[in-house]
Simulated assay, not measured.
Amino acid sequence: MPEDHVTLSVTDIEIRLLVQAVYLRYGHDFRDYAQASLKRRMFQARQRMGAPSISALQERVLHDPQEFAQLLQYLTVPVSEMFRDPGYFLALRRHVLPVLRTYASLKIWVAGCSTGEEPYSLAILLHEEGLLERTILYATDINHASLEKAKQGIFTLDAMQGFTRNYQASGGQRSFSDYYTAAYGGAVLDKRLRDAITFADHSLATDAVFSETQFVSCRNVLIYFNRNLQDRALGLFHESLTHRGFLGLGSKETLDFSAYADRFEPVSRPDRLYRRKPEAA
C-alpha cells in the first residue's frame, strides 16, 4: 500500500463519488466544500429524501434532475433574513456609503444571495441614502429554486416581524412596512425594490468574474468552503472590485490567513468590512 494512501470510510467514499457525479452531470462543484458541513448535509438529505444509502441517493440524482434539484436545497442551505447582523448595515451607512456616494454610477454584487434577503436589504439601504437610482445591483447564487423565490420578493408575515427589528437596529430611517404590502397570506416587497435587482446564476466554484463592481457583499458563504475554494472566491472578488472597492463578509468569516489577506485593509474589522488596497507601483 502506498505511504500516502489514506483509508476512507465507505460513507466518505460514497460522498466523494456523489459530489464528483454531481459535478460531471450538472456542473455544480461541491468538491472543495468543507467536508464536515458537506457530510452533515448529505446525511440530512439522504434521510429526508428516503434513500437507504448515499450510493442509492447518487443513483437517483444521476438519473432524475428533479432529485438533484431537491438535493441542492440541502447542499446550499437557503436560509437568511433581511438586515441580518444589523451592525453590518449600520457600518455600511457610516463607512461605505459615504464613499460610494462620490461615484456617478455604482455596481454592487451580492454573491450567494440565497432567497434574496441580503440584496433586498441593500436595496432599501441604497434607497434611503439616495443611491438606488444610480446603482446596478447583481445578486447571484447556484440554487435555481432560491433565485426564483428571490425574484418574487414574497416573505411570510412572521418573518417580517424579525426583519422589522433588524431594520430598526440597522439605522432604518422609515417604517419598514413602507417597503411591503400584505398580500397572498404573506408580504410582497415593493416593486421598485424587485426591479432594482438583477438575479443570476453564478458559481463561485466554477465561474469567472462577470462585472466590475465598487462593492461586493458575500456573507455566510465562505464558511462552507475549504481553504482552496475560499481563496478562489476571494480572488474573484478582488478581481471584480475597482480601485479601492469594498468587500463585506459574514460575522464568522475573515480574510486573515487567506491568500488575499495582504490585498485588503480593514474598514471595520468587527463588522467584517474591508477595502481593496491600491496596487503596488
Rank of each mutant, 00 (worst) to 15 (best):
Q230E: 09
D12M: 05
E81S: 15
D195C: 04
R134V: 09
G27Y: 11
R232W: 07
H5A: 10
Q168C: 11
L229M: 13
H238V: 12
Y167E: 02
P278Y: 08
G186R: 02
V216G: 02
S175Q: 10
L255D: 06
F176L: 06
A169R: 15
T213S: 12
H144P: 15
L189Y: 08
Q73D: 12
R219M: 05
P266M: 05
A56G: 07
L72C: 11
H127R: 01
L71Y: 09
R244Y: 12
S203V: 10
S121G: 05
I223L: 12
V61R: 07
D231A: 01
T76A: 08
A123Q: 01
D32T: 05
Y26S: 11
T135A: 02
Q152L: 13
T242L: 11
T213V: 15
F264P: 10
T198R: 11
L236P: 13
M49F: 11
F215R: 00
G172Y: 03
V19M: 09
F225E: 05
R219S: 09
R263F: 13
V96M: 01
T102K: 13
V79S: 02
Y184F: 15
L189R: 02
T213W: 01
S53A: 10
Q70P: 03
N226C: 04
S217F: 13
D207F: 09
S105P: 07
H127I: 00
E253F: 13
L8V: 03
H238N: 09
F237L: 04
H238P: 12
F89K: 08
N166I: 02
L132A: 01
R84P: 10
A183K: 12
D178C: 04
H28M: 04
E279C: 11
K151N: 01
F199R: 03
G186M: 02
G185M: 01
P270D: 01
K252P: 07
A145Y: 07
V188D: 03
A196R: 04
P86T: 04
S37P: 10
A56I: 03
Q58T: 15
M49Q: 00
S217C: 14
G250R: 06
P266I: 02
Y88K: 01
F225A: 10
Q168E: 13
R46W: 07
K252A: 15
A280I: 06
R60A: 15
D262N: 15
R25E: 12
L247E: 01
T11A: 06
V19D: 00
L18F: 11
F237D: 04
G245I: 06
Q230G: 10
F215L: 15
A69L: 14
G186F: 07
E81F: 12
E265N: 07
G171F: 03
L157A: 03
V209H: 11
N220Y: 12
D207K: 06
L131E: 00
